[in-house]
Amino acid sequence: MKTLIISPDEARYLALINQGLDNYRQHKTKKDLLNIITKLGYVQIDTISIIERAHKHILWTRFPGYRNDMLDELIDKDKKVFEFWDHAAAYLPMKFYRFSLPRKKMYAEKYKTWEKKNKKLLKYILERISAEGPLQSRDFDDPKKRGLWWDWKPAKEGLEFLFHTGRLIARARKNFQKVYDLPERFLTAAVNTEMPSYEELAEHLIMKSITSGGITAENEFTYLRYHNRNITKKVLIDLTENSKIIPVKISNDEKTIYYSTTKILNKLNNAFKFSNDVYILSPFDNLVIQRGRLKKIFGYDYVIECYLPAHKRKFGYFCLPVLYGDKIAGKIDTRADRKTGELTVINEFWETGVKTNKDFRNIYLNKLNELALFAGCYIVKYNSK
């Protein structure tokens, strides 16, 4: 099939509209929230909460009226979202549940020796949850029994093993800790629990990535995700030959082959323009999480430095990328202190011409105030140079 050449502007446009960064003001309901999660394909969970938890920040970026109870209801009440693993810990739409099964099977096989050594522990955990209902890891912490096999640390390992192999499910989080339950008590009859073939899994990964990114490259849809490499390559060829997906190149990067669909590419048939909205993104946001893609499509080289020793950081512990229209305008090092109610902007690092743009500055300062409120603060302490 002939490869379609698109411009860098067109590539950014497709990326932004498929990431839900073009009409965020329209979202108002829990159904809208589910649609966002479904279109993104996953929402990453991370322990760092310098501003707010990653998943909350990602969803708030696209849904300013986001409330935690909305996500809680989608998981525990409506059974429309579940927690598992994408390329990292994540919330996923329940319609994708069956595609979590191959990784669970792989995990069980990989750690079968550990399972044999810990049969009594796993039996104990499952019996307690079966009898008592949903439990957290802290429910297994008994100071009187320290040092035995039901101690908290091995119990935590056992809970996570059972979670990653699908014998337990996380039906909620309390104080950011998983609440574990039996799948049969959580999943409804409507959930498809049929094990997909490797071919089905590959097509799912490809189409999910196209839906969320507009265009996607092979190294993007397989990024840290369990799959069969040879079968995935074959499925990619088959989908292309059957015109289900279209090979695409960006005019300033003819080495990278991307893939899209006719439906998505047809969005380029009409004239488009970028908004002048400002988004202060989480470092784990779906738009920026794959740094190579970000550099190729948006021309921005971004590194999160919280995992580096302090003496090796060039910018700051937790810099947030700032999107302005179709460009990454720069990044800001900031921190929320909910005790004092202050959101402190420690420093800013802007691309050329951004700092002197008055229109941008006004929108950005308003967005900072919105970020502060989202983070549980009411004052922006502006210390940047």
Rank of each mutant, 00 (worst) to 15 (best):
Leu268Glu: 05
Ile210Gln: 07
Thr216Glu: 00
Lys267Thr: 02
Asn242Lys: 14
Phe274Ser: 00
Pro309Gln: 08
Glu199Pro: 06
Thr262Asn: 13
Thr262Lys: 14
Tyr259Asn: 05
Lys174Gln: 13
Leu308Phe: 13
Leu268Met: 08
Phe186Leu: 02
Val248Leu: 00
Asn276Phe: 10
Asn242Asp: 15
Tyr307Gly: 07
Ile206Trp: 05
Asp285His: 03
Thr222Ala: 03
Ile237Arg: 12
Lys174Ile: 15
Tyr307Gln: 10
Gln177Ile: 10
Thr262Cys: 03
Tyr198Ile: 01
Phe186Pro: 07
Tyr226Thr: 13
Asn266Cys: 06
Lys249Ile: 12
Lys273Ser: 14
Asn252His: 15
Asn276Leu: 12
Gly292Gln: 13
Tyr226Asn: 15
Leu224Glu: 09
Ala202Thr: 03
Phe315Tyr: 15
Arg229Cys: 00
Pro283Glu: 10
Asn286Asp: 10
Pro283Gln: 08
Asn266Lys: 15
Leu205Thr: 10
Val191Leu: 10
Ser260Asn: 02
Lys314Met: 13
Ile206Tyr: 01
His204Ile: 01
Cys306Asn: 15
Gln290Asp: 14
Asp277Met: 05
Ile245Arg: 01
Lys249Val: 14
Val179Ser: 01
Tyr258Trp: 12
Tyr259Pro: 05
Lys255Leu: 13
Glu241Lys: 14
Leu182Phe: 10
Asn192Leu: 02
Leu281Pro: 05
Asn270Cys: 07
Ile250Glu: 04
Ala310Cys: 00
Val248Trp: 00
Ser275Val: 09
Ser209Phe: 01
Phe284His: 07
Val303Glu: 14
Glu199Cys: 07
Asp301Ile: 09
Thr240Pro: 03
Gly292Trp: 09
Lys255Asn: 14
Glu241Phe: 08
Val235Ser: 02
Val191His: 05
Lys234Ser: 11
Phe221Pro: 02
Leu187Ala: 03
Pro183Asn: 05
Arg225Pro: 04
Phe284Arg: 04
Cys306Met: 13
Thr193Ser: 11
Lys244Pro: 04
Gln177Asp: 13
Ala190Glu: 15
Lys233Asp: 08
Lys267Met: 08
Lys208Gly: 01
Leu187Cys: 06
Ala310His: 09
Tyr258Ile: 01
Asp285Val: 06
Gly316Glu: 11
Met195His: 06
Leu182Ser: 06
Glu254Cys: 03
Lys273Trp: 02
Ser260Asp: 07
Ile245Asn: 02
Glu241Met: 07
Val278Ser: 03
Ala202Leu: 08
Thr188Val: 04
Lys208Trp: 06
Tyr258Lys: 06
His311Asp: 13
Glu184Phe: 11
Lys314Cys: 02
Arg291Asn: 05
Tyr226Cys: 10
Phe272Gly: 12
Ala190His: 09
Asp277Cys: 02
Thr211Tyr: 10
Leu224Tyr: 12
Glu199Trp: 11
Val288Arg: 04
Glu200Phe: 00
Cys306Gln: 11
Ala271Phe: 11
Tyr223Phe: 15
Arg313Lys: 12
Tyr300Phe: 15
Asn242Cys: 08
His227Met: 10
Leu187Val: 04
Asn276Cys: 03
Ile215Gln: 02
Leu224Cys: 10
Lys296Glu: 07
Tyr180Met: 07
Gly214Pro: 07
Leu182Trp: 09
Leu224Ser: 08
Tyr226Met: 14
Leu205Glu: 11
Asp238Leu: 06
Gly316Gln: 09
Ile280Cys: 00
Glu194Val: 15
